[in-house]
């Protein structure tokens, strides 16, 4: 265990004189209402292009990795999730938690605003965050009628998504997955 904690102090710099908001790293951000963002996300989902959301996730992942005291892969999960959750909370993307179902890693995001029906936008966001954070391509598949996202290899993401859409719950999906080989 470690006592390292994400320091949110002064993360946002509000330059009221110039009407700008910047993050600690200098990136300019805009504060949007959820009812403005939601239709934009729905449009992106309908067009099948969530690249922008995943890019945002990559930016958040970079912030997290720069804040961590060590590479994410070498840190306890609670530290990584704490940092990642803190950054997500700062941007208003809900509360992040982590669950482990057998060998499956499951992310839980509570308190999200209603965006798209299948939560594909948040799935793309999480995929961008953890792909950048862990330097590995990650797919986060939303589980239907829940706030959970299972972390899988992108090559099996469509299969898992199909299971979820067909009504399989998380326990069923986890049981359908077998750990091939753990180094």
């Amino acid at each position: 265990m470690t006592d390292a904690q994400f320091d949110p102090g002064g993360f946002f710099q509000f330059d009221l004189a110039h009407g700008r908001v910047r993050t600690r790293g200098g990136a300019r951000v805009l504060v949007l209402a959820e009812n403005v963002l939601a239709p934009l996300i729905v449009t992106a989902v309908q067009s099948g292009d969530l690249t922008a959301i995943r890019t945002l996730g990559s930016q958040l992942g970079s912030i997290v990795s720069q804040s961590l005291p060590a590479p994410a892969n070498s840190l306890p999960p609670q530290v990584v999730i704490s940092y990642a959750g803190s950054v997500m909370s700062l941007y208003g993307w809900g509360r992040l938690r982590l669950e482990q179902w057998g060998g499956a890693l499951v992310l839980v995001v509570d308190g999200l605003p209603p965006l798209d029906e299948d939560n594909l936008a948040v799935a793309a966001l999480l995929g961008g965050i953890f792909s950048t954070l862990c330097s590995a391509e990650v797919a986060c598949v939303p589980l239907a009628r829940s706030t959970k996202y299972i972390v899988v290899d992108p090559r099996i993401a469509e299969t898992v998504w199909g299971w979820s859409k067909s009504g399989d719950n998380l326990a069923t999906i986890a049981s359908k997955l077998s750990s091939a080989e753990v180094a």
Binding site: G103, V151, D153
Partner: peptide
């Protein structure tokens, strides 16, 4: 976290 992620991705 890396071990957990690797395990999850290997599913």
């Amino acid at each position: 976290f890396g071990a957990m992620l690797k395990r999850s991705l290997s599913l």
